[in-house]
């Protein structure tokens, strides 16, 4: 059988089983950990980026103020956007490795274990 998207979940856990996992405490904890981390961080970097854009548009004088030689506030602000992007990337990667992956791995093992026959069938899918 080849994948078409329609039969994707044939033989997998049933809707009830998915809902059972979804309602369970471990899954709630996983979802909570993901959301309390990524939502505030997304709000922060979007606001920080927007601040940069608005300063560039409405306060060009401020951005043109020299800092050192020909390097001005605008260049520094622009480079800081690079710095925050790299830092957020690192923070998220380490948070996900430490706080998200262990729960996700455990839940996945349990779900795929309960539908063992389905899993082997699914693995043959693309062959």
């Amino acid at each position: 059988m080849t994948g078409t998207g329609y039969e994707r979940d044939v033989g997998g856990p049933s809707g009830d089983q998915w809902r059972e996992v979804q309602a369970g405490p471990e899954f709630s904890e996983l979802r909570r950990r993901l959301r309390v981390f990524v939502f505030p961080l997304t709000a922060f970097f979007l606001a920080w980026y927007l601040l940069y854009v608005l300063l560039a548009v409405y306060a060009p004088g401020f951005m043109a103020a020299p800092v050192a030689g020909n390097i001005n506030v605008g260049i520094v602000f622009g480079l800081l956007q690079f710095v925050t992007t790299f830092v957020i990337t690192g923070l998220y990667a380490s948070y996900a490795n430490r706080r998200l992956d262990p729960i996700a791995d455990r839940l996945r093992g349990r779900i795929e274990g309960t539908s063992a026959e389905a899993a082997t069938e699914g693995e043959g899918e693309d062959r």
Binding site: G12, F27, R31
Partner: peptide, 23 residues
Amino acid sequence: DPDKQAEMEVRSLTGAGAEKAVA
């Protein structure tokens, strides 16, 4: 669809039932 929503959310966060690599 609550069943599909549950399946999608659980799968998206845990990777259960995700497409595997071809050997």
